[in-house]
C-alpha cells in the first residue's frame, strides 16, 4: 500500500483539528479537536512504521494514545472547573490570563 494515502488522511485530520482549535469557542470542542490532531499523528506513526517495517512506530502510537487519554482527562477536569467558576465554557470570555 502506498504510504501516501494514510499520510493524506493524517494531514486532513490534522487540518480539521487545527481548524477546530482555532475556530470553535466551546472548550470541550477544542479538546476534541486536540484529540483529532493527536490521532492524526498516530496515523503518521503507524504508516511510517509499516512503510519502513519498524515496530517502534506502533509502540510510539500506543504511548501517544496513553498520553492523550491522560491529557483529555486533565483537560476535561479543567473545563469542568472553568464551567463551575464562569458558568460557561466559551473560551473568548475566559481571559483571566490577560495582562
Amino acid at each position: 500500500m502506498d504510504t501516501v494515502y494514510p499520510l493524506t488522511l493524517s494531514a486532513l485530520l490534522f487540518g480539521i483539528g487545527v481548524y477546530g482549535i482555532l475556530a470553535r469557542k466551546n472548550a470541550v470542542m477544542i479538546l476534541a479537536s486536540v484529540e483529532l490532531m493527536l490521532n492524526a499523528c498516530n496515523i503518521n506513526f503507524v504508516a511510517f512504521g509499516a512503510a519502513w517495517n519498524e515496530i517502534s512506530g506502533q509502540v510510539f502510537a500506543l504511548f501517544v494514545i496513553a498520553v492523550a487519554a491522560a491529557e483529555v482527562g486533565i483537560g476535561l477536569a479543567i473545563v469542568l472547573l472553568i464551567y463551575r467558576n464562569h458558568v460557561n465554557v466559551n473560551v473568548d470570555e475566559i481571559d483571566s490570563m490577560k495582562w
Binding site: L22, I94, M97, K98, W99
Partner: peptide, 17 residues
C-alpha cells in the same frame, strides 16, 4: 508590549501556527 498578551489562547495558537 503587554497588549500582545490578550489572554486569548486561540490567538496565541494562531500566531504560533
Amino acid at each position: 508590549l503587554k497588549r500582545m498578551q490578550t489572554g486569548q489562547v486561540q490567538q496565541y495558537l494562531a500566531v504560533f501556527l
